[in-house]
């Protein structure tokens, strides 16, 4: 989840992400949407007379909820593989557990 917000250039911090293409007065794209702002590009934008920026703010990841989903995914996999005792299936289960840590259901 993320929100798009307009901010004055002086409030911009390195590491922020652009929520839209940044164009100069002539419509030329200076930085594409999704670019990460660097200290140097902020100085360059100031020289080019840019006053406001559209940035994207990522909602903070809810660690607690993520942990809960991972745990639920782990239990679900144990349930799905409850009859799979052979070595090949066990290897697959191990991989699925790893996969669901990264992408919980």
């Amino acid at each position: 989840m993320s929100t798009i917000k307009q901010i004055p250039l002086e409030e911009a911090q390195p590491g922020m992400l652009l929520g839209d293409d940044l164009r100069d007065a002539a419509g030329q794209v200076l930085l594409p949407r999704g670019s990460e702002l660097a200290e140097s590009s902020l100085r360059s934008l100031a020289r080019r007379g840019i006053e406001t920026l559209t940035i994207r703010i990522e909602a903070p990841v809810d660690e607690g909820a993520l942990m809960a989903r991972r745990e639920a995914s782990r239990l679900r996999l144990q349930h799905l593989f409850r009859q799979a005792g052979d070595p090949a299936s066990q290897e697959l289960l191990r991989l699925m557990l790893e996969y669901r840590q990264e992408r919980p259901q």
Binding site: L77, L80, F81, A84, D86, P87, A88, S89, L92
Partner: peptide, 22 residues
């Protein structure tokens, strides 16, 4: 088939992953 069951694409309460043939 094993992969689709393991991904739980069509979740059912009694879903069961069939054994994988080595």
């Amino acid at each position: 088939d094993v992969m689709a069951h393991a991904l739980d694409l069509c979740p059912r309460e009694d879903e069961l992953v069939p054994p994988l043939s080595a």
